[in-house]
Computed example of a mutant assay.
Amino acid sequence: MDVLSDAIGVMRTGRPHSSEIRKHAPWGVRAEPFSGAGFHVVLEGTCWLIPPAGAAIALSVGDVGCLPHGCGHALADSPLTSLTGAPSASLREIAPSADGGEGATTVLLRGAYTLDQTRPHPLFEELPEVIHLPARLGHRTPLHAAVSLLGDEIANPGHGTEAVVSALLDIILLYSLRAWLDEQTDDGSSTGWAATLRDPAITAALRHIHQEPAGQWTVKALGAKVGLSRAAFSRRFTSLVGKPPLGYLTWWRMTLAARLLRDSDKPVQTFAQRTGYTSEFAFVKAFKQEYGLAHGRYRQQSRR
């Protein structure tokens, strides 16, 4: 178990989508915000990614523009191209057909993931609206290999394409987020998840919590698992994660419980056991305290 995979896994809903987009200059499209994450990769030509705030970002062949929060944005052949009257769509629905003029061609590969943003993992909350990963020879080879495979699969579909595309989209999202986390500098005073995932002891503690959410953990027991005293572990964990150890444990248990309620029709007792509660009553009480409504009502609302 690892924190990044779990953070994405617990938020994922539905299946990811991908398509190739071909445009001829001058062109410009707006993408409306949506509940999820997405990316654009330039396969041919160049374009500009225009975020809702801040400077436009130039994208060249092989560049990845990742949008972990599904923020609204625009794409254009030039930051000077007028977007007035440009078709609006979500990142999942940008028209793949060619439009614009008769100028230079740009070919984009885009992917979109539906995520439950009502309870994002705190790791996601620290991510910027746009992550720009420029293509550089010999740099991020696994990411660009996955992009190349995805482009080939979309251009030449065959048996099992749906499964292949879904798996490659997951890989690209994970590689993009890993690249951003790896590139954050640490001067020894930073906090947050980029620093957290570089701390071997706290990362190990998080893995224990994620792997055994039903474990009867105490601060002392978690500290002992990673070779720290109770006090030292508690201070270090709270400073990096932003929650005390048992606070994060409760948050993770309730996040898993919500996912199980949304995706399964099993009885509540099953969820209580899987999330470390000794009785159905204790689980129901903890869930209502966390979410502000009964588990049954939550299950109904999450399936609408």
Rank of each mutant, 00 (worst) to 15 (best):
A37G: 11
F283K: 04
L4W: 05
P120E: 10
A282G: 11
P245K: 06
H132A: 13
G292P: 12
K225F: 03
A37Y: 01
L169A: 08
G158D: 10
R274H: 11
T161C: 08
G242C: 05
G160Y: 10
H24Q: 13
R110W: 02
Q289W: 06
S190H: 03
L222K: 02
L137T: 12
E280W: 01
T255E: 01
Q289V: 08
E32W: 07
A286Y: 09
H17W: 11
A25F: 10
S35E: 14
G192P: 02
A167F: 11
A145I: 09
Q216L: 09
G100W: 07
G227E: 07
K266F: 14
D182R: 09
G72L: 05
A258N: 02
E20L: 14
D182Q: 12
T255Y: 04
A56H: 06
W48S: 01
V147R: 07
H69Q: 13
A163F: 09
W217N: 00
P142Q: 11
E183D: 15
R22I: 14
A76W: 03
P16N: 05
A221L: 12
F281K: 14
L109N: 04
S279D: 12
A145H: 13
A112S: 15
T161F: 07
E290F: 14
P79I: 10
S239G: 07
P26V: 05
S279I: 10
F233C: 03
R230G: 00
A294S: 13
R30P: 00
A204P: 08
V219K: 02
L240K: 00
A204Y: 05
R15M: 07
G85Q: 13
D170L: 06
P245D: 03
P68C: 08
V268Q: 14
S279M: 11
L260H: 09
L177Y: 05
P128V: 12
L123T: 06
Y291V: 05
A294G: 13
E44I: 09
I94G: 03
E44P: 01
Q216N: 10
A195N: 00
D182I: 02
P122T: 08
A56M: 04
I154E: 04
V130T: 15
L80F: 10
S229K: 13
E102T: 14
G62V: 06
S97Y: 10
A224D: 15
K266I: 10
A258R: 12
F237S: 00
G292E: 12
D265E: 15
T191D: 03
E44H: 15
G14V: 06
R30N: 09
D6V: 00
R178G: 02
A204L: 11
V226S: 02
G223Q: 02
